[in-house]
C-alpha cells in the first residue's frame, strides 16, 4: 500500500495536520502567528545550510528554527519590539536561504519544492520522520497540556501555581520547530503557518473548551489535507497550496455559518 505515491502523500498530509491543529490553537491563543511565519520562512535557510554542509535537512531545519526562537527571545528581552524582530528574521531567513541555494550552483535544488512543498514525492523514510515528529509533538502537548494552558492564560497565575511560564514557552517553541521541520516537505516553507492557524481559526466558533478546539482543529486540518489532495489531483494543481486553499475555503464557510448563528 505504501508503494503508492498517492497513499504516501495522503498519510503525510494527515500526519502534519494532526500535529499542526492542536499546536496551531496555542499559536492563535498566544497571538504568535508571526512567530510561526518567521520560523517557517527561516526553514528555507535550514534547507540551504543542510545542502551546503551535507547534513540531514530535518536536523538542520530544526536547529535553525530553535536558533531563531532563542535569538528572538534574547533580542526581545533587550527591548526590540517582537513584531519587528520577527519581520527581520522571517524575511532575512528567506532571503539568505534563497541566496545560499542560488550560490550552490553545482547542486540541483528544486526551489519550488522547498517553497511550496512536494507532497507526492514523499518517501517511506520521509513518512517515518513526519509521523515520528507528529506523534512527538502530540505527546509533548498532551504531557504539558495543563501547564501550557495555564501559562497561556496568565503568566503570573501559572507562576503562583508552581508552573514556570518560560519553560512552557520553550516547549511550545520546540513543538513549533518540530512541526515546521516535518511540514516542510508537505506544504512548503511559505505555507506551513497556514496549516497551524487556519484550522484553529476555522473551528473556534464551534469549540466550547480548549480541548475541543484542539481536537476539532486537528480534524479540520486532516479533512482539508484529504480534500485538498483530491482536488489537486483532479485539477493537476500543486498539492500544498491546494490544501491551504481548501482550508481557507472551510474557514470562510465556518465564519459565515457562525455569524448567521449569532
Amino acid at each position: 500500500m505504501l508503494d503508492d505515491f498517492l497513499v504516501r502523500g495522503v498519510l503525510a498530509g494527515l500526519g502534519v495536520a494532526l500535529a499542526a491543529g492542536p499546536l496551531g490553537c496555542f499559536i492563535v491563543w498566544r497571538r504568535m502567528a508571526y512567530f510561526g511565519d518567521a520560523t517557517s520562512h527561516a526553514a528555507l535557510l535550514g534547507v540551504a545550510l543542510a545542502l551546503a554542509l551535507s547534513v540531514p535537512v530535518f536536523a538542520s531545519v530544526l536547529a535553525v528554527a530553535l536558533l531563531l526562537a532563542v535569538a528572538v527571545s534574547q533580542l526581545a528581552a533587550r527591548g526590540f519590539p517582537v513584531d519587528t524582530l520577527l519581520g527581520v528574521f522571517a524575511h532575512g531567513g528567506l532571503a539568505i536561504g534563497l541566496v545560499v541555494v542560488a550560490l550552490m550552483g553545482g547542486v540541483r535544488v528544486d526551489l519550488m519544492a522547498i517553497l511550496l512543498g512536494d507532497i507526492l514525492a514523499v518517501t517511506r523514510s520521509d513518512l517515518a520522520v513526519i509521523w515520528g515528529g507528529a506523534v512527538l509533538v502530540i505527546a509533548l502537548l498532551a504531557w504539558r497540556w495543563s501547564g501550557l494552558l495555564t501559562a497561556t492564560l496568565n503568566a503570573d497565575l501559572a507562576q503562583a501555581s508552581g508552573i514556570d511560564p518560560r519553560r512552557e514557552q520553550l516547549i511550545l517553541t520546540l513543538a513549533l520547530a518540530l512541526v515546521v521541520a516535518v511540514a516542510l516537505k508537505v506544504v512548503g516553507a511559505l505555507l506551513i503557518s497556514a496549516m497551524l492557524i487556519v484550522p484553529a481559526a476555522t473551528v473556534r466558533p464551534f469549540a466550547t473548551s480548549p480541548e475541543w478546539m484542539a481536537v476539532l482543529a486537528a480534524l479540520a486540518g486532516m479533512a482539508s489535507a484529504l480534500a485538498g489532495l483530491a482536488l489537486s489531483y483532479q485539477l493537476d494543481a500543486p498539492a500544498g497550496p491546494t490544501i491551504v486553499a481548501v482550508a481557507t475555503g472551510a474557514f470562510a464557510v465556518a465564519a459565515a455559518a457562525a455569524s448567521r448563528r449569532d
Partner: peptide, 15 residues
C-alpha cells in the same frame, strides 16, 4: 483572549 474558549468549569480545573 477571545480566541480561547474557556468555560468556568474548565478554568476551575487549571492547572
Amino acid at each position: 483572549d477571545a480566541t480561547m474558549p474557556m468555560p468556568v468549569g474548565r478554568f476551575l480545573r487549571l492547572p
